[in-house]
Structure formats: C-alpha cells, structure tokens
Design a protein around this nucleic acid. Structure first.
Lengths: 301, 301
DNA sequence: TCTCAGCTATAGGGACTAACTATGGCCGCT
DNA sequence: AGCGGCCATAGTTAGTCCCTATAGCTGAGA
C-alpha cells in the first residue's frame, strides 16, 4: 500500500471510470488499472466492481476509499507542517545564558530581537558556564551566551562584545574619590567574590592577582545583585562587569571607579553546535546584538 | 514523500540513532540515511540534527514526526478496514424483489438468512421487474429476486423455486366446491388482474388465455393484497401464486381451488451482475432458500 | 449484421529508484 | 596509536512503476 495507490482509488471512486481517473492522476489508464488490481490483490478484497457501463466501489471499497481520504489528508498535513517550519526564524529558540549576563543583557536583547525575528521567542535557561556547555552538548539548548574562553570541543563560537570591569566601593570608602584603580590595588580579603563555579569570579581572580580567595562564605555572593547589596552595606569592595552596574549607575550607596587603562574586560560570545539546524536563528541573534544601544557593550559584530 | 519515508523518520525519532532505527525498520543503515536526506531535501527543511553522540529531531522535525505518526495511523486503518471487509458475508446486501414475492417470501427468507449470514442485513427494494432490471444494471441493487423469464443481457440468474398458481373465488361462488379448475375455465371479465407492469399479471394472462384484459380500472388491483380483498368482497375471481395465499389459507371470505394438473406455475430466480464482488453473498442467499420450510415453495436448489 | 467507439485488461519494454554492500571520515575511548 | 561506533557516500543490482501498443468486450448505430 502506497500513498499513490490510495490517491488512485480515491480518484477512481470519484470519477467512476478508469480512463478519467487516470487522467485526473496524470498517469496512463493501464498504470491506474494495474495499481488498483495490485492493491486489491494485496488486501485480498475486491474494492471496485467493474460493470458494463460503470465502475463503482463495492461495500468494502466505499469504506476503504473514505478511510483513504482521511489518510491522504493526514499525509498532506505532514508536508504542510514541514513547509510551515521552513522559516528558521519561526518557533522558540532555546537560549542558555550565564548568571552574570542574563539579567543585564537579555531585557535589551529580547527587545532588539523582537524587531529582527518577531516569531522567534526565547526559551531562556540561566546557569553556569560548565552546565551550559553540557546542556549545549546534550541538545537541551540551541545557543548559549557565555564569556570567553569557552573551550568546548565541537562547538562554534562567535564573539559579540567586550565589556570592561569596574570597581565598586561603598560610599565613604577611602577609594571613593580616586580617578582610577590599578588591578594590583584590588587585594586583600575585603574583596567580595561570587561563589565558585561562576566564570566571572575566575575572571576577576585572573585580572586582579592580589585578590585572595576568602576563607569564609561571608564574603561570597550568589549573584551580582547580592554582591552589590553587600558592597552597599559596607561589607567590602568588588569588581563588576560594566553592564551590571545599572544605568546610570543609579545606586547612591555605592561608588563606581574605573580601572586604570588598559582595564580588565571580558569578551562575551555566542556558542552553538556546528550541526544546529537553524543557522539563520544565529544570524538573527547577531543582528539583535547589533541593535543594542547601551554604551556598556563594545560591539564586535 | 512516501509512507516508508514517514515510517523512517518516526523510527529515527524514537531510536535517536540511525543504525538502530534502520534495524527497527529492517533495512540497512545507508538506506535509512539517504531516505531521511531525501525527505529533508524534498521538504527543504532539516528534520534532524546530527550531533556528536546523538540524533535528535529539530523543532520542525518534532512536529513533522508527530504528524507523520497520525498519517501512518490513518494509513494503517485503511488496511484494517479492507481486511475487515474481506468477509463477504459482512455488510448489507442490497436486494431487489418484485411486489408479488416480497411480502410473502421475505419474512421467512430473512429469518432463514439470519442463520446463514447473521452479519449481512438486507436492504430491500420492492419494485416491478423492469425497474429492478434497470436498478440491477445501474448498480443500485446487488441481487434481485424475480420470476423467470428474466432476459436481461449480461446478468446471471439461478432458479430457486417453483410455485403453482391457484384460483381464488368468493364464498358462495359457483366454483366454490369444484375439485379443480382448468386454465381455460378462467375467462371473461370477472377475472381480477394486477395493473399493467406487474409480471405476475402477464403470467396469469399467459397461463389463462381466455382471460380478457378488463377495459376499466375497476377490475385492476395494485397489489395481491388488494386483489384478495376485492375477491372477498365479491367483485370477481382471480389467480394467485401459492405463496400469496396466506397460511393456512386463512381468509374465510374466499375459497382456494387448485388448477387442473399440470397447474400453471411460475419459476422464481435470483439474478445478479456477473461482476458482483460478493459471490459468497449469493451462496448465502441460496443457502437461506434451502432453509425455507413452507410447502408453497418447490425448491430447485 | 457489421462496424465503430468506448472502456478495461494484458503484454512488453524502459527508466527510475530504492535497496544492498563496501568504504571513508569523524569522534571518543582505551 | 589503535579501535569501535556512528553517519555519509559511492557504486551496483533488483525491483517496480509507468509507458505504449494491443487485445477483448460491449453497446450503439448504419
């Protein structure tokens, strides 16, 4: 039984005549004749009665033809579903993002993406780099936004922007009025850090070699928001990426001091599997990044 | 797009692995591989993402696979419908029958047929011979029960029984106590006949050559039942087939007198198109006739 | 009665395709 | 480095699907 044969019996039932049915199917009359005979043989039932001046479905044939119409309809829907899905910018995109980027970039990015690909909503997974790498590999997300380096074998990356780090200190701190701070100045155990596993923590440690890992959890924050609050309450100083400072540096309990040039920075990138079936979705994301307006992002695209 | 290809993508989505999916479909791995690629090419959409350690449906692929399952289900139902219909004794049989047989034979025949083919109900068309011939030809009925001769080209017939004709007269009629009546005795315009078009009328005219066609409608009956009433009310005499006399000659307003041997009779037969797709249904009808118990039918089968 | 037209079934040939085996490339694991 | 699992490609074969040509049948009309 093939879809073609089903089309043949439906046409024959409609036309009541082998020749016209064949014409309707754009095949020759013997082709249709043989196909019907083959199907009847396969089923072991005579589907049509060939009479003197007519061809008409038997009792069984009538039921079979009706069911065949249903089957052909469902089959046609398969094609339609596939065709509708040809637009790679339709349907949700599963986006992974690290904690230190998501809350600050995504509000703007989503807004920008709406212009580029209005039919492609984002399903967002916020997690740490290592977990995102695994999820990307296991096909649980389609694209991730992380900070470089992101050395995962078999994954494509594309840098999208750089952003500087800045020092934040509580109001009244001795550094409050300095024009800049050298990375080496950031030292000692009054520096608040994110908990282990956050890549931004490692980047700070790399940029400011004098910082010592605090021995107690008291100087570790779960998120950048927590760190800001801890700094504002006078627990210590910290280092944040520029995009996380809020615009325009709104919290009046903390002061923001730039690093001495060249300031430490991080490079943010997209990453995806090379086999990902919707490359245009990646392009759309890049376009959305190009549409970002905040000066915190030094675009690379 | 073929049903086979749909089976392939469903299997691949289930197994997540080309080799296992191919095994599941009892084909080689390259076969499945090229079939999937062909389908993706036809649709213009990538249905599966081939990753390092996995094969998984894309967003479109997922929808397509779901729809493919529906289509395959409907296609399988086609086969089931056909298979269920293999029993020729299932489903209604369209039976045509003439007015002078139907009301007397069918009650018994239906009862008998229930034993032989319980799943084959009769859809009954009662009409005159000429119309039944046309309906048989036009495939509006499957089988007809008529009185021979039934010379319709391209139709098969099989005699099933003979039944004698009998004379009926009203109580008090001079013939009431005769042992038999010769066909030639039935004469004159006191003989009631069916209206033109009923084959039984012609058979009576053939059997009793002295009978003249009445010039007025007053001596014509629409049905055998009407004729009986007219005889009972004293309007005249008539000739009926034995099966129409009622059992056991119940009407006490009329008397039944046999013809002199050899009594005129009619031969009743089945007729069907030679191409009819359910020969076993004919056999079942014949079996049902064999099961008739009334002495009115001298069975020929 | 003969012929013609319309219809379906059959025969024979050709092109396509869908299947196979064999093999190559890639990656991860030992 | 070697091995095994996995998918893609190449080349071949067998099957089948469709075509043209034609035969057989029937009904209509000359």
């Amino acid at each position: 039984m093939t879809l073609t044969e089903l089309r043949y019996i439906v046409a024959l039932a409609q036309e009541g005549n082998f020749s016209r049915a064949a014409e309707h199917c754009s095949v020759s009359q013997p082709t249709l004749s043989v196909a019907i005979a083959r199907l009847e043989d396969e089923f072991g039932v005579q589907l049509f009665e060939r009479g003197k001046g007519f061809v008409s479905p038997s009792a069984v044939g009538l039921k079979v033809v009706e069911q065949a119409k249903l089957a052909l309809g469902e089959a046609e829907k398969v094609r339609q579903v596939a065709m509708r899905g040809r637009d790679q910018l339709e349907g949700p995109l599963r986006l992974g993002v690290i904690h230190t980027i998501g809350p600050y970039l995504l509000p703007q990015l989503i807004h920008s993406l709406k212009e580029v690909a209005p039919a492609m909503p984002l399903a967002i997974e916020e997690n740490m780099t290592a977990n995102l790498a695994e999820m990307l590999h296991d096909n649980e997300v389609d694209v991730v936004i992380i900070a470089l380096p992101f050395d995962v074998p078999g994954v494509l990356t594309r840098a999208i922007y750089d952003e500087s780090f800045k020092v934040i200190v509580p109001r009244g701190h001795p550094w409050e009025n300095r024009e800049w701070i050298a990375p080496e100045d950031v030292a000692g155990d009054e520096v608040l850090l994110l908990k282990a596993g956050n890549c931004f923590r490692d980047q700070v440690l790399g940029a400011c070699p004098q910082v010592s890992s605090p021995e107690t959890d008291i100087r570790l924050g779960h998120s950048i928001g927590t760190i800001r609050c801890m700094v504002a309450s006078g627990l210590g100083v910290s280092v944040l990426p520029e995009s996380a400072l809020g615009h325009p540096y709104s919290n009046d309990m903390i002061s923001v001091i730039p690093f001495k040039e060249p300031a430490p920075a991080r490079r943010v990138a997209l990453a995806w599997r090379p086999g990902f079936v919707r490359p245009k979705a990646i392009e759309a994301l890049l376009d959305a990044v190009r549409g970002l307006s905040s000066p915190a992002y030094r675009l690379l695209v």
